[in-house]
């Protein structure tokens, strides 16, 4: 149990996918102007990452042991198509949930954070449950980063930002500052 907990915490804050490993920057920059949308994007991320983790484990354990050179391409194809199928099922079964997450799902299926999770998990030799807690931790970490970013960006909307820094430039500077702050977690748990 303790092992699973540390994997989760580590993926969430110490090696935060966005702020420490710089994966998944596209949604981080693109969908972080409002807290509401950022939160939903985060939820969609947790969802897709969890599916990815299960998929990658199955592929690795049962199929790719016979053909390891197909790893990258089969990850991409299987994860993308599975998420598409899940999206269709949600659309049919629960329109409310679809409106909450639906439009974000296709956006992130081919994101580097998703593929990154599958590859990290494989390289570290995680089992099914370790992989799941890794995926949930990574998803929570992405959500945390997105929501923090969105709350700061909402306040800067009221500030008289110079024209030079408006828009993406300011977003990048905030992202860099957040990343500097998250460096404080570097090495957490590893020393003891």
């Amino acid at each position: 149990m303790g092992d699973l907990f540390w994997i989760l915490i580590s993926a969430m804050v110490v090696n935060n996918f966005t702020l420490s490993l710089f994966l998944g920057l596209c949604p981080f920059m693109g969908v972080s102007s409002r807290i509401e949308t950022a939160l939903r994007m985060g939820m969609a991320n947790i969802f897709v990452l969890t599916i990815t983790s299960i998929c990658a484990w199955f592929l690795n354990t049962f199929i790719l042991v016979h053909a390891p050179y197909l790893r990258l391409i089969s990850f991409i194809v299987v994860i993308a198509s599975l998420v598409q199928i899940v999206e269709m099922i949600i659309k049919k079964a629960s329109p409310t949930l679809f409106r909450q997450l639906g439009i974000y799902l296709p956006l992130i299926t081919t994101n580097c954070a998703i593929l990154g999770l599958a590859i990290f998990q494989t390289n570290r030799g995680y089992g099914l449950f370790q992989g799941l807690s890794f995926a949930i931790g990574a998803g929570l970490g992405l959500t945390l980063a997105l929501v923090l970013m969105a709350s700061i960006r909402e306040t800067t909307e009221l500030a008289d930002v110079p024209d030079l820094a408006k828009g993406t430039a300011l977003t990048m500077i905030i992202a860099g500052s957040l990343s500097l702050a998250f460096m404080g977690f570097a090495g957490l748990m590893s020393s003891s």
Binding site: V147, S151, I152, E154, A181, G184, L188, S190
Partner: peptide, 29 residues
């Protein structure tokens, strides 16, 4: 809380700066 966590279990000896920066990020919230 962040100061204690970073000082006791972090890779750095001092965590006050990072603790304040992290909480700065949470202030709008």
């Amino acid at each position: 809380a962040l100061v204690v966590v970073i000082r006791l279990w972090g890779g750095l000896a001092e965590g006050v700066m990072y603790a304040i920066l992290l909480m700065n990020a949470l202030v709008p919230f």
